[in-house]
C-alpha cells in the first residue's frame, strides 16, 4: 500500500525539482537580460496599467452591479442575461453594429486595396496627391460634420435641393430622421472615412515589391494584371493585408462618433444605435458601470474573434 503511495509521490517530487531549477534558470536569464527589461519597462508599465488592467477589470465588473458610489456587488451572469434576453435596444444596436461592420468593413477594406493598387501605377507626384486625397477624410477631425449640412433635412440641404431641382424628389427627404435612410447615409459617411492606416500600409506595401518578381512572372506566363495581382502582388503583401484587416475590423466595430454627430444620441427609433453608443449610454449617462462593462466585454470578445477568423481567411491568399 505504502509502496503505491510512494510511487505516486515520486514523479511529483521530480517535477517540483525541475520546476524549481527551471525557475532558478529563468531568474538567472532575467538578471542577465536586465538591460532589455529596463528598456521595455516604461512602455510595458504604461501599457499594462492603461490597456491590460482595464480589460481585466472590465471583465470582472461585468459580473457585478456597480454604480460608482457603492462598492460593486457580485450578481453572476445577470448582466449578460439581461443584455441578451431583455434589452431590446441592445439587440437592435448589435444588429446595427453588425450591419455597419459587415458592409463598411469589407467594402472599405477592398476599396483601400483597389485604390492603393490603381494609385501605385501613377507617376510619383500624382501618386502623392492621390494618396493625400484618399487619406485626408480619415484624419480631418470632425470634418464629417459637413455631411450633416449636405444631408440636411430641409430644402437648404445640398442633396435635398439638388434632388428637388432635378425633379427626383418633390419634397425634402428627412435623411437623418427617417429610420429608413439613417443607416445608408451613415454607411456612406463611414466609407468616406474608411481609407485610413490600412490604406497607407497597402500603398507602402505595393511600392516595396521587387520589380524583378514581375519580370519573372511574365516569363512564367502571367498574362494580365489580374493574374499578376493574385499570384505575385497579394502573396507579397500578405503581412500588410493582415495589418489592414486588423485596422479595418477594429474601427468598423467601434463606430459611434459619426452616428452621434449625424443622427444624434439617441437616434430616432434607435435606428442608428450602435453597441458603442449603448456602452456610452450606460457608462457615462446612466452610470450602470457593471452593465456597461458587460457590453464592453461582449464588444471586446467580438472584435478579437472576428480578427482571428479573418486572419485565418487571409492565410489562404494566393494559394
Amino acid at each position: 500500500m505504502s509502496a503505491v503511495v510512494e510511487k505516486a509521490v515520486q514523479p511529483v517530487q521530480g517535477k517540483t525539482v525541475t520546476f524549481r531549477s527551471r525557475f532558478e534558470n529563468l531568474k538567472k536569464q532575467v538578471w542577465k537580460n536586465k538591460i532589455s527589461y529596463l528598456f521595455v519597462a516604461p512602455f510595458g508599465i504604461i501599457f499594462f496599467v492603461f490597456t491590460i488592467i482595464p480589460v481585466v477589470v472590465s471583465m470582472g465588473l461585468s459580473f457585478t452591479y456597480f454604480n460608482i458610489l457603492e462598492t460593486p456587488k457580485f450578481i453572476g451572469w445577470q448582466n449578460y442575461t439581461r443584455l441578451f434576453l431583455s434589452d431590446d435596444v441592445f439587440l437592435k444596436s448589435v444588429k446595427n453594429t453588425f450591419l455597419l461592420a459587415a458592409i463598411t468593413g469589407p467594402i472599405g477594406y477592398l476599396a483601400s486595396l483597389m485604390f492603393a493598387w490603381f494609385i501605385n501605377e501613377l507617376p510619383p507626384k500624382i501618386r502623392a496627391l492621390m494618396v493625400l486625397i484618399f487619406y485626408a477624410p480619415s484624419i480631418s477631425g470632425n470634418v464629417y460634420m459637413i455631411w450633416q449640412v449636405m444631408f440636411s433635412s430641409d430644402a437648404y440641404g445640398y442633396i435635398n435641393s439638388t434632388l428637388i431641382k432635378l425633379g427626383i424628389a418633390t419634397e425634402p427627404i428627412l435623411w437623418l430622421q427617417d429610420p429608413k435612410y439613417i443607416m445608408p447615409v451613415i454607411m456612406i459617411v463611414v466609407l468616406w472615412m474608411s481609407l485610413g492606416t490600412g490604406f497607407l500600409s497597402f500603398v507602402a506595401g505595393l511600392q516595396s515589391i521587387d520589380r524583378v518578381q514581375y519580370e519573372a512572372g511574365v516569363v512564367d506566363g502571367i498574362k494580365n494584371r489580374w493574374q499578376e495581382l493574385w499570384y505575385i502582388t497579394l502573396p507579397n503583401m500578405k503581412p500588410m493585408l493582415m495589418f489592414g484587416a486588423v485596422m479595418s475590423i477594429t474601427s468598423s466595430f467601434a463606430i459611434s462618433d459619426v452616428t452621434i454627430a449625424l443622427a444624434g444620441m439617441p437616434s430616432v427609433d434607435y435606428a442608428a444605435h450602435t453597441v458603442v453608443n449603448h456602452l456610452i449610454d450606460y457608462g457615462t449617462i446612466r452610470f450602470e458601470m457593471g452593465y456597461a462593462s458587460a457590453i464592453a466585454t461582449v464588444l471586446f470578445l467580438t472584435m478579437i474573434f472576428c480578427n482571428k477568423v479573418v486572419q485565418n481567411l487571409l492565410r489562404k491568399v494566393g494559394r
Binding site: T51, I53, I249, T250, A254, V276, A296, M303
Partner: peptide, 20 residues
Amino acid sequence: IVVTSLMFSSVVTAIPNYLV
C-alpha cells in the same frame, strides 16, 4: 500581446480607465 491589443478599440477600456 501588443499585436492583440491592436485588435480591439480603446472604447472597450474607457470605463475601467476612468477608475484607474
